[in-house]
């Protein structure tokens, strides 16, 4: 349980945008900047943060859908940051992804059978009947009836589409699944069902999840550890319970205090109100110093000058903030 499955060190993913006349200038967008993370076997690591904070990019870079710009990734002890070709393909089958937009994730012109069997067809050479049997099994795992085999995505509800996406991610018996806001397009009544399904699958197949979300109430309920991102950087990471009990980074506190809650009991869990001022700066020109400084109510002179150092503030609790160094 406590074995390390994946570890990243100084992982960066930059996007380069041409700008200026004739695209002479190149602007750098640091979508993910020096991310240090550890993912243990069988746990759920949540990545939270507002849209544009780099959660999706980090998830995709960790499982090598994107090629990292810098940094290191270890998967079960093997360094996979720079592997290519067949070696990469070998690792990739153990790392799958479920996408945020269930409609875009499924080819509208393919049947459920074709969609779920794609990983099987690219990795294994199964005869048609076996393929169909295996897909039926997968459908059963995600609690869909077998007669969905020949349906097209447009005949499915959003929740059912997401189940198909999950079945496809499960096809190759992965070890790690990146779940990119899998329920953000769904209604709460359906979300609860999908979350229950994911939890059951995790137990049954000893899966490890990287769960990306902007919904802290969900994260609180399903994750073991949480990393908070802001503008491409991880600002705080801790065991989820610790993080909710004693959030340290001002941004984490602001995020927690902004959760729309539905009962008085919940009120007690969240920290005192913090209202953020201003807007997220453009990721194309982030000011020097701490990324969060422009919106932070507790900023000190040093925050606008130097990047905040990493501070270990307790058991497995890390924060990147000058106040704690």
């Amino acid at each position: 349980m406590n074995q390390l499955l994946m570890k990243t060190e100084g992982l960066c993913k930059y996007f380069f945008r041409d700008s200026g006349l004739l695209g002479r200038e190149q602007k750098v967008l640091k979508a993910v900047d020096t991310a240090d993370l550890e993912v243990k076997h069988g746990e759920t690591l949540a990545l939270v943060g507002e849209s544009g904070s780099g959660k999706t990019t980090l998830g995709k870079t960790m499982i090598r859908i994107y090629k990292p710009t810098k940094g290191k990734i270890w998967f079960e002890g093997d360094e996979i940051c720079s592997v290519e070709g067949d070696r990469l393909r070998h690792y990739r089958r153990y790392m799958q992804m479920v996408f945020q937009d269930p409609t875009s994730a499924l080819n509208p012109r393919k049947t459920v059978l074709d969609i779920i069997s794609l990983p099987l067809r690219t990795y294994q050479n199964l005869p048609r009947t076996e393929l169909r049997e295996r897909v039926k099994e997968l459908l059963e795992m995600v609690e869909l009836p077998p007669d969905f085999l020949y349906r097209y995505p447009h005949a499915l509800s959003a929740g059912q589409k997401q189940r198909v996406g999950i079945a496809r991610a499960l096809a190759l018996n992965p070890k790690l699944i990146v779940l990119d806001e899998p329920t953000s397009a769904l209604d709460v009544s359906v979300q609860a069902k999908i979350l229950a399904l994911l939890e059951r699958l995790r137990r049954e197949f000893q899966l490890t999840y990287i769960y990306i979300s902007h919904d802290l109430s969900v994260v609180k309920n399903i994750s073991d550890r949480t990393a908070v991102m802001y503008l491409g950087q991880i600002v705080e990471s801790a065991l989820t319970d610790n993080l909710f009990e004693s959030p340290l980074h001002p941004y984490t506190r602001a995020l927690l205090s902004a959760i729309p809650i539905i009962s008085a009991e919940e009120q007690e869990v969240i920290p005192e109100e913090i209202t953020l001022v201003g807007e997220i700066p453009s990721p194309l020109d982030v000011p020097p110093g701490c990324n969060f400084a422009s919106r932070c109510q507790e900023k000190m002179p040093i925050c606008e000058a130097d990047e905040p150092p990493l501070a270990k503030v307790g058991n497995d609790h890390y924060v990147w903030c000058h106040r704690y160094s």
Partner: peptide
């Protein structure tokens, strides 16, 4: 740009 293309690519199709 759609995700299903990215899925096929990441699977090495």
């Amino acid at each position: 740009e759609e995700d299903f293309v990215e899925v096929s690519e990441s699977l090495g199709a």
